[in-house]
Design a binder for these strands. Sequence first.
RNA 1: GGAUCGGUAGUUCAGCUGGUUAGAAUGCUGCCCUGUCACGGCAGAGGUCGCGGGUUCGAGUCCCGUCCGGUCCGCCA
Length: 595
Amino acid sequence: MLRSHTCGELGIAHVGQSVTISGWVQGIRDKGSLLWIDLRDRYGITQVTIETENASAEIIETARKLGREFVISVKGKVVERYSKSDKIATGAIEISPEKINILNAAITPPFTIEDETDGGDDLRMKYRYLDLRRNPVRKNLELRHRIAIETRNYLDKLNFLEVETPVLIKSTPEGARDFVVPSRMNPGEFYALPQSPQTFKQLLMVGGFDRYYQIVKCFRDEDLRADRQPEFTQIDCEMAFVEQEDILNTFEGMVRHLFKAVKGIDIPTLSRMTYADAMKYYGNDKPDIRFEMKFVHLSPTLSEGEGANTQKDLVKGKGFKVFDDAQLVVGICAKGAAEYTRKQLDELTEFVKRPQIGATGLVYARYNTDGTIKSSVDKFYNEEELKKWAVAFNAQPGDLMLILAGEEAKTRKALSELRLEMGTRLGLRDKNKFACHWVIDFPLLEYNEEAKRWHAMHHPFTSPKPEDIELLDSNPGAVRANAYDLVINGVEIGGGSIRIHNKALQAKMFELLGFTKEDAQAQFGFLMNAFEFGAPPHGGIALGFDRLCSLFGGAEVIRDFIAFPKNNSGRDVMIDSPSPIAKEQLDELQISLKK
RNA sequence: GGAUCGGUAGUUCAGCUGGUUAGAAUGCUGCCCUGUCACGGCAGAGGUCGCGGGUUCGAGUCCCGUCCGGUCCGCCA
């Protein structure tokens, strides 16, 4: 060993001992006759002190040659410091060196290796191995490790087996785009990298492994985001002989265990919300319930029908065309925001009018602290009518009502964005506060306008609720699935379903999704065949591991919780991939490139 | 595929309405300094203003195109 101790463990108890420590030069402070070297490794920083009066010429010469990030080892005595530091764990001692070895010189790094680095994201990605030396990045990976260990601990105790599934699998038409891998031995044919081990874990259930899990890489060739990488990690789980309730309880237990074991936080029992309510009250299938600010409907909703409840209609027929023509008029009440200035309200209007949000405008009504109500539509609604709004919003003096109108789906989505924006502005989205819940009863199918056909909302193996099966032919969009999402702080952390384990029902699903019998057989015959050999009822869930880590770490970007992440364009700027391959390789694979 | 913000010293940024020699901080180099720990002091080096074209007497600044990066929409069963 090139060290007897790490740079983080020496303290006053070691004074007088002869030790060897190794690490990187964090910095040097040269005061002429006194010179300090901060030596850093994964575990901490230890100060090496050289008094030029007493030190050998060799040591002084070596020390003055050092630069940042040189790798050195220092043999010397632990001595108590003359002036101690309480900023670092080893601040009470320093090393008086007898010998300094330069193990490797280093050129000046392009950014500072400090907690608050001066490096931009791009540079840090290019020199990721330097970025990894920084405390914040290291701590994120330590957190990731801890979450993985605790996940395994929890699942192992419950008899789950970690089983590896193949990475070279088969491309399927459903879902995300596949990354594909050409097969040299099978010219013209391709493997696909798994979007998830979905079918394999179901086959493990058929194979009698009634409790499976895997912390596993998944691959999706879709456009990226701050919380999406082309390769990402899932905690993938499946159980046999269970119903939805069992899955929810088991993984609620896991989430609570992780919060307790990793962060020391006791999470209350997870609440549940139906998909329909999530959309109705939050305009979003993954509501952030750290704060209320539920949607308030000022006109009957589409599902309730035109004029179904005229008493509820507080806005129509007063000559305000925007509301009269709207399919939906819906708003939120921002507590205590009545004092928003014109400028702030204009900002909010601009916010909802951004093309990504897509609202055409924003109506506001201030419930002033003097009890009067001032709205942007006073021309159409008198004080008495506005008071009725306030009642509907349950608004108090000092509150601000924000209202959007328009086509239902678009308006809900826009108001959802506005709600989150207001939550942020009002400081209601504390990253140290965690609100976990289940969204259940997702629709089985959603209609894809572009492809003019039904798509599986979760995936094609999801079972419909038995009581809704009769609707499969008459009203496919109304069929609910035994599908559920785990949502934490408005982030979709996981999702799963009870699967179909019956060949006939699975065949029916494929038919609904527009597969011919032949296509279904060719793509998923192996699964349907397996179902004929005694498939147990089963279901499962998959949790986004990277997202879970970033959530625990209080970040929204998952990149810094991955040792070697890719950028927004799916590139690894450190190794510069993807990259062209040699003509010989292409030839061997029987691949020719389009010009 | 689309929206939007950015690209100026090794790095992070400033640079207004187009106008003299493009600045600051930090890092780097040299010298001084006996208790620093974001050490301090003095001096110095360091620039194809992403790239191409255009407007203009004159472009870091305006226009067009392009490349790269961030965030978002579409997409992500």
